[in-house]
């Protein structure tokens, strides 16, 4: 397993937001985490990337226990996150934002290669190369956030709501790109409110409800699950 969460709890002050989450992500998979607002999806992501300290439980990545590792060192180990709300640096240009994604890497030639790859995946970013990140549209910022997260050459890419605030056309496009990234060899764990898209693209998925995992299965299984349909797919 590339990533393994074993009974992980996270608390904000005295309020526990995750009550013991266990999940796994295998190498080469796309795994989706779906659930309603406030179910703990983003908290789970923050625990994995190290922005939120873990109370009880263990997080293992690529064979090592990273439960207590600093966030910036997890990037070096191969975890990369496109955060909730995109987290673009508003005062940096598109190019500088992408370069920030490669902050932990030294080899200029490789970084240039990856810049090119990001521009190939998102030609729009090339057009906006010298523009300040804060002036981009929501969709462009999303592309930038995903492109930037790839710049560290991660083993595991964490995507927090990649479709949030995007037009339906763009949602299709961004999921196409996620699948493409995955086929190029990057493992993906994504959090989504757009369960329809997430489940149809993911190999496996977990359903999160108020800080607990209540269901897991393959994407197709969950798509046809009556309870999931009822709660998350908006199908009558």
């Amino acid at each position: 397993m590339l990533l393994e969460l074993d009974n992980v709890t996270v608390a904000y002050g005295r309020i526990e937001a995750l009550h013991g989450i266990s999940l796994t992500v295998g190498e080469g998979e796309i795994v989706a985490l779906i659930g309603a607002n406030g179910a703990g999806k983003s908290t789970t992501m923050r625990a994995i990337s190290g922005l939120r300290p873990v109370g009880k439980g263990k997080i293992r990545f690529d064979g090592d226990d990273i439960t207590k590792m600093r966030a910036d060192l997890r990037v070096v180990r191969g975890v990369s996150q496109s955060p909730e709300g995109r987290g673009i640096f508003p005062g940096m240009t598109v190019r500088e934002n992408l370069e920030m994604g490669a902050y932990t890497r030294k080899l200029r030639s490789e970084i240039d290669e990856d810049l090119q790859r990001a521009f190939d995946l998102f030609p729009r970013l090339k057009e906006r190369e010298r523009q300040a990140g804060g002036t981009l549209s929501g969709g462009e910022q999303q592309m930038l956030a995903v492109g930037r997260a790839l710049m560290s050459r991660p083993k595991l890419l964490l995507l927090d709501e990649p479709s949030m605030g995007l037009a339906p056309m763009l949602i299709q496009q961004i999921f196409d790109i996620i699948v493409e990234i995955n086929q190029q060899g990057t493992t993906v764990l994504l959090v989504e409110q757009n369960a329809q898209q997430a489940l149809s693209r993911a190999h496996r998925a977990y359903v999160l409800e108020t800080g607990r995992i209540v269901k897991e299965g393959t994407g197709t299984d969950l798509l046809t699950d009556p309870a999931v349909k009822d709660a998350y797919l908006g199908v009558a």
């Binding site: 922005l51 910036d72 508003p90 940096m92 370069e99 902050y103 932990t104």
Partner: peptide, 17 residues
């Protein structure tokens, strides 16, 4: 650039390493 990143958004800066 790292300094500017922390100034603009410390959490995201950590996510960049």
């Amino acid at each position: 650039r790292g300094v500017r990143a922390v100034a603009q958004n410390p959490d995201v800066a950590a996510l960049m390493g």
